[in-house]
Amino acid sequence: MGRARKSKPGSRRAAHPPSTLSHLREGEQGVLDRLELSLEEAQRMMELGFVPGARVTAAGSAPGGDPRVYRVDGSEIALRRETAACLKLRRPMSHRTA
């Protein structure tokens, strides 16, 4: 990333690694584990690149952080927080930490 991410001092997340897309802050990335959506909605998301195993990077957002743009599979897709919260990330121990 060419751009330093804005991290607040005293980040309390060291103990709780991001578990869904909505927990990723700008510049952070994670690996998608599963989509907790209805079959139809999950299908749509997968067509856009949100397949389990895909690496997702959080990018810019509307003011207030919702909706946020995510980089996945070579494109940028904006999701509302409520949807991003349904996309669960893989535990960092099975993958490198962000």
Partner: peptide, 9 residues
């Protein structure tokens, strides 16, 4: 019910 908002940039 609200449907997911998904938009490509």
């Amino acid at each position: 019910h609200r449907t997911p908002f998904v938009m490509e940039m």
